[in-house]
């Protein structure tokens, strides 16, 4: 992505703001997934596009410094999340990937529903973000 001018002030400032909004929204989508449109796939894709926007506005190096994740590793971590949620239910004698939920009272938030589907969906989220960015960055970085 060398062809983009790296010093576009307007773009960069507005992008920072926009990215923040997209990030927040994507995280909301991810959490709301169980009861409203959203979930791991959608949240993940939106996060991926937020990070892509950042790459478009800034240059590769800056972003790599700002987001010090290895996206390929993220795929693995996500898969492990998903698998371990599944195995966890086996430890209690239920079939692989049985999910549970319950409602809890928290001081500030009031009644909150917690489900074991959430870590599973987090796994999905991480894999989607990791895979999308791995693919795009692999091509972008390849300037042979």
């Amino acid at each position: 992505m060398k062809q983009l001018r790296p010093n576009d002030m307007m773009l960069q400032v507005s992008m920072r703001l926009i990215t923040l909004i997209i990030f927040a929204f994507s995280f909301y989508l991810f959490l709301a997934g169980h009861n409203n449109p959203g979930g791991g796939f959608i949240g993940g894709l939106m996060t991926a596009s937020a990070i892509l926007v950042l790459y478009l506005a800034f240059d590769m190096k800056t972003i790599t410094k700002a987001i010090p994740f290895n996206f390929t590793t993220m795929i693995g971590v996500g898969l492990l999340f998903a698998v371990f949620t599944g195995i966890a239910s086996m430890l209690y004698g239920f079939p692989f990937l049985t999910q549970f939920f319950d409602y809890f009272q928290f001081p500030v938030f009031g009644e909150v529903e917690l489900t074991t589907a959430l870590p599973f969906d987090l796994g999905v989220y991480l894999v989607v973000v990791g895979a999308a960015l791995t693919i795009i960055l692999a091509i972008a970085e390849d300037d042979k």
Partner: peptide
């Protein structure tokens, strides 16, 4: 499954293995 979004519940709960 305690979820209102049926599509998402199918994905993460009823058909979790497929999603995985």
């Amino acid at each position: 499954a305690g979820g209102y979004n049926i599509v998402n519940v199918i994905l993460v709960d009823f058909r979790g293995l497929d999603t995985m």
